[in-house]
Nucleic acid binder design. Sequence first.
RNA 1: GGAUUAUUGUGCG
Length: 263
Amino acid sequence: ACGKAGQCEKALSLLRKMHDAHSPRPDVIIYGAAISACEEAGQWEEALLLLGEMHSMYGLHPNVITYNSAISACGKAGKWEKALSLLEDMRSVHGLNPDVITFNAVISAYGRAKQWRRALFLFRKMHSVYGLIPDVITYSTAIDACGKAGQWEKALSLLGEMHSGHGLSPNIVTYNAAISACGRAGQWKNALLLLRGACSIDGLSPDEFTYNSAIDACGKEGRWEEALSLIGEMQSVYGLCPDVVTFNSAIDALGKAGQWKRA
RNA sequence: GGAUUAUUGUGCG
């Protein structure tokens, strides 16, 4: 609870109180929760300390979930090398089998660090070497990793792969990542095609992220008329509320087009 | 029964 509320310090001080002799002994789940709390606060070093401490102080063995949390903590802090070495440790040191969530977390770590080649390599390897089937989160994460690195064509081909595969359909987050990938690369027309495709091909309802990403895609290219029209549409067709992000992108569009009065 | 993974803007750090 402390972690989700951004109160990493409170979580850690509760854990320290459990070191008292008359307190109940912390278990593997308590440590998992504490490591997650570090993750939200960017405290990857603390997360790694806890991973060691649970064994040295209490003889607790980290499990796959504990490792996944620690990997995610490192990934969110931009430490992809640490994330990768945890993936190796969990196998070689603890004999644990990484699961789909483990790989998703490492791919996400690569994405944040703009390591798209590594992200795609691991994406393939999790299937070919570990026999794990990528899920919709794996695809969304990999698409986002490509998008963050400017690789919009790679992102779109992953989305296409989902459609040609079997039993795995993109959800709105997958599309949002793809739209954002196009937007970052100046591909505003493709971003709009994806927005339409999400509805017409996959029957998905766009959310605020979808529209904000599409509006920003237009904004980056100065397409202010399209941007303003999308703001109207998100309200009238889907009942979505433009927020501060929406307006920032629209103002950006107007500014780039020299429309300072409208801005 | 309780802990883990994905998506949007600007600026600053």
